[in-house]
Amino acid sequence: MFTIESLHQPQTLSEVKQLVEKYPDITVLGGCGFLKLSSRKIPVALDLSRCELEKIHETEQHIEIGAMVTLRDIEKNPALNQWFDGALPKAVSHILGVQFRSCATIGASVYAKYGFSDILPALLALDTQVELLRGGRMPLVDFLSKPITRDVLTRIVITKDKRRVSYQNLRNAGADFPLLNAAVSKHDAEWKIIVGARPARAEIAVQASKLLTSSAYGTVDSGTVAMAASMELAFGSNNKASAEYRQAMCQVLVKRAIEEVLA
């Protein structure tokens, strides 16, 4: 269990900014589910729960998700269920139980860039941007590829477009971490294929996505694309599964996701 020496609860983002500048090693508290597993000694902690970041806001063009929105909020949100074939609610609904999802926050889940994340593949399949206090807005894919810098994630912004999305995952026990997961989206003619829990972090299979995008439906079959994705991405072994098995399952999940999008 972690310990906290001093805590700050700012009410505005400008106060947050001042605090972050004053304490370079300040630790932002998310849902604390994973922080709790560590015995970190935190000198200065920052709580964002009074900064109006616990709302999901729907605009004409976007859905904006505050960093303190819980995974349970996402699961229940009408807009997120209505858009993108409900891929985001579907992805989070596999994570443990309602009590846990009512604690875990989207900001921490994205900021920590967990390899086993169920959320990242789904978010990567959408037109998703992250908003950072200091770094400003950037596409999620750029955020993920950069090293973790000391910053505060304030919002996730998703463009409302009429894309079809499929989220697939393979687990042994229902409440376990995924052995592998995948998300596939189709926006107009553009396809995106993402595979996560490899066990490394979710990544876009760029070549396979291009292959699918450049081919008219019918000329490339989903199995070939899935095979391409499994050759393009790297897979590793851990206690849950071997690299070879993950690579083989990548073909299965990606194929199923493509077929679900086409269905």
Binding site: N172, A173, G174, A175, D176, F177, N239
Partner: peptide
């Protein structure tokens, strides 16, 4: 039969040492 996997590392640390890593069946399993 299906879920409760016991894993040690090479130094003899039991790695399946929590309900996160040692999965007893849940109700949907």
């Amino acid at each position: 039969a299906l879920f409760e996997d016991v894993q040690y590392d090479k130094k003899g640390n039991l790695q399946s040492n929590s309900f996160m890593t040692y999965k007893i069946p849940g109700r949907s399993d």
